[in-house]
Amino acid sequence: MVDLAQISGIWFGAALNIFIWSLVFKENRFYRFAEYTFIALSAAHFSVLGVKSILTIGWIPLSTGKISYIIPFIFGFLLYTRFSEYWRWLSHWPIAILVGVGIGLGIRGAIDIQIIKQIRATMKLAVFANPMEAFNNILFVIMLISVVSYFIFTFAQEGTLGKGYNYLYRLGRLALMAGFGIALGNTVAVRLALFTSRWIFLIKDFLGIG
């Protein structure tokens, strides 16, 4: 028996896919239809997950007697006061909790993982087993220092020291370009992989070829 849900899904999906790609020719109503559908589905999906999460991590403990969980519920509802001009100031309180937690967790994590461990790993580069590794390690450290110095804007680059700094600054820019180039090459891979996956859907699932 033909699976009607599957077939209708493929036709619906193929139509939406082609509507989105129609933007390549020009902005049109089909594209806008697909665009609005995407926004609607995205917002609805996030809301559904929100409701499901409130029920599991909020309502279950509250219903089992943890009365203190009423507080995050009140703060959660306060978020929606931002749509009222008069009560908007109340929405800043739950946002303050989210920002405070984010800052606290962010600072402690950044110091450990992004600063201390990264510096420690760089210092370990002083140890090497062969000339090739030595070359790589030296290049690594030079590029690292030059890129970090590229991001320092707090003092004027003048005098003899400033001249030396300018060379480092220039090297930093070249190193960044190498990094951007590698990132570009990899970005292309992602876009082509997604493009290919859509073509597989259109050719194999929709047209039934291959």
Partner: peptide, 17 residues
């Protein structure tokens, strides 16, 4: 506080809609 923040974040998911 962290557990509360996660519940508040769940409420925030409906803001876009």
């Amino acid at each position: 506080i962290r557990d509360w923040a996660v519940i508040i974040a769940a409420f925030a998911l409906g803001l876009g809609a």
